[in-house]
């Protein structure tokens, strides 16, 4: 077939493609299939082993260096001594009660601060004036070092449980409010418009669009807030308390029992990690409905 010249355009003739440009013996016998899943599993295994090795190495070096005197065991204690002190504290002391005390004030403050803060942030959707008036104060509260308020809170609420909860609450509430506020601000105006065009009332727009839209923002503040909340509870115990890990650390410091200080640090680290894992589970549960990306 020859190319055809039409008025204003040309239809070209196509050359048949040469079929045997590659010789059969040069072609691969087996198709190449990349085992992506296997590669990922191997990487995962190596990462796991690597983490374990590094962790063990740190503990081993710590123990070794304090024994041979490269690190002063008076200040640095040692893993074995920390473990034995922990055991004594669990069996003869009040370590378990202290853990319960610190974690419950942390969790209560975290829940209260996150709930109330998120509600406050969400409420800014209802009135632009209310949001505009509140905003600078929220930023001021965020900038203010809440821990400096600790003495006032302890004097106000006493040295008991509630001053710690209040401090954990104060640490988290502003972050939660600001996160929810950004979430609310990101709601697509056209989406609201569409809802109204479907005859929705304001409360329907709020529950069906605004809250789910702001949810990822609120969820993202949870991880920060659990750590802040724990810090608040511990500082509260530093100031004045008769229970808790924070009190134990301060007490151990004043009687120069460095081993016990280390026990406090280790226990708090573990506590913090456990709570973090709890929050990650909570996040997973909360974002279950958000199958936006393929699950």
């Amino acid at each position: 077939m020859e190319s055809v010249q039409k008025k204003g355009y040309v239809i070209h003739k196509l050359e048949p493609a040469p079929i045997h440009s590659v010789k059969p013996e040069k072609m691969q016998k087996e198709p190449v299939i990349v085992d992506e899943e296997g590669a990922r599993r191997r990487t995962q295994r190596i990462v796991g082993i690597g983490r374990l090795t590094v962790g063990l190495l740190i503990v081993l070096c710590w123990e070794l260096f304090t024994r041979i005197g490269w690190m002063d065991s008076y200040y640095w204690s040692s893993p074995v001594r920390i473990l034995s002190t922990t055991w004594t504290q669990v069996t003869q002391g009040t370590l378990l009660e202290d853990i319960a005390y610190t974690s419950s004030s942390t969790i209560l403050g975290f829940i209260g601060g996150t709930l109330i803060g998120s509600l406050l942030g969400l409420s800014f959707w209802w009135s632009r004036r209310f949001a505009g008036i509140s905003e600078p104060f929220l930023i001021l509260l965020n900038a203010m070092p809440k821990l400096a308020l600790a003495p006032v809170l302890v004097i106000l609420l006493g040295i008991g449980f509630f001053s710690k909860v209040a401090l954990a609450f104060a640490m988290t509430v502003v972050v939660a409010a600001l996160s929810a506020h950004s979430g609310v601000q990101s709601v697509d105006k056209d989406m609201e418009k569409l809802m109204y065009s479907l005859g929705a009332k304001r409360h329907q727009v709020f529950t069906k669009v605004v809250i789910p839209w702001a949810m990822p923002w609120m969820i993202s503040s949870l991880r920060i807030n659990i750590a802040l909340s724990l810090a608040g509870a511990i500082v509260g115990e530093f100031i004045a308390s008769s229970h808790g890990i924070g009190r134990m650390v301060i007490y151990a410091g004043t009687i120069l029992d460095i081993n016990l200080v280390w026990v406090g640090v280790v226990v708090l680290s573990v506590l913090s990690m456990v709570m973090y894992a709890g929050v990650v589970l909570l996040e997973k549960w909360l974002s279950k409905g958000y199958g936006m990306k393929k699950a």
Partner: peptide, 13 residues
């Protein structure tokens, strides 16, 4: 009236 925009405005969740 029913109303539809260029963006599909489907709720992602």
């Amino acid at each position: 009236v029913g109303y539809m925009l260029q963006k599909d405005m489907l709720l992602p969740w």
